[in-house]
């Protein structure tokens, strides 16, 4: 097996595992155009070994390997939150789009100056717009993939959640 096909297999395995933990199909994940960039990011941030260990874990295990949590969040919003930032809603608050103001003050990078963890980062501008979160909530990323004038007046269709739809 050549190196290239090994890399291809690893990427496919990454996407297959990601589909199980994100709840989106492999088609949806490839459809973001981010598979390579996310795989590369995960390898760069935690190393091959930790990533392989995470991908070998039971996708339904809870609490998950913190690396798995990082991978889920990466697909959902395009931000790499390091495994050491597990559970940090204060950090997440600043990385969310929308008006700022009531959030706790933080230094650049979404963390306090004395915080030793690596700051979160957006993998690329289109990683933001390809976040799966927005599809999960029946909306579109704030500032991209607009749904059209007046569409906001229609009842919501929350994906995969027909039973609670208001019609």
């Amino acid at each position: 097996m050549t190196q290239e096909t090994t890399a291809g297999t690893e990427l496919r395995d990454f996407v297959k595992f990601s589909a199980a933990v994100t709840g989106f199909s492999e088609f949806d994940l490839w459809g973001t155009g981010q598979a390579e960039a996310y795989h590369r990011t995960a390898v760069d941030q935690v190393g091959q070994e930790s990533l392989r260990a995470a991908l070998a874990s039971d996708p339904s295990a809870a609490p998950a390997d913190p690396v798995v949590a990082s991978i889920i969040k990466l697909w959902y919003v395009g931000v790499w939150y390091g495994p050491e930032q597990v559970g940090r809603t204060d950090v997440a608050a600043w990385t969310a789009p929308g008006r700022s103001g009531a959030k706790p003050a933080v230094a650049e990078g979404g963390r306090a100056a004395e915080d030793p963890s690596a700051p979160p980062f957006v993998v690329s501008p289109d990683a933001y717009t390809e976040g799966l979160l927005w599809r999960a909530i029946g909306a579109h990323p704030s500032g991209a993939k607009a749904p059209g004038y007046g569409s906001w007046a229609t009842p919501p269709a929350v994906e995969d959640h027909q039973e609670t739809e208001v019609r």
Binding site: A96, A102, K103
Partner: peptide
């Protein structure tokens, strides 16, 4: 979002 940083905080 303005108050809590939702929806990212919900995700975390």
């Amino acid at each position: 979002g303005w108050a809590t940083g939702s929806p990212y905080t919900d995700l975390v």
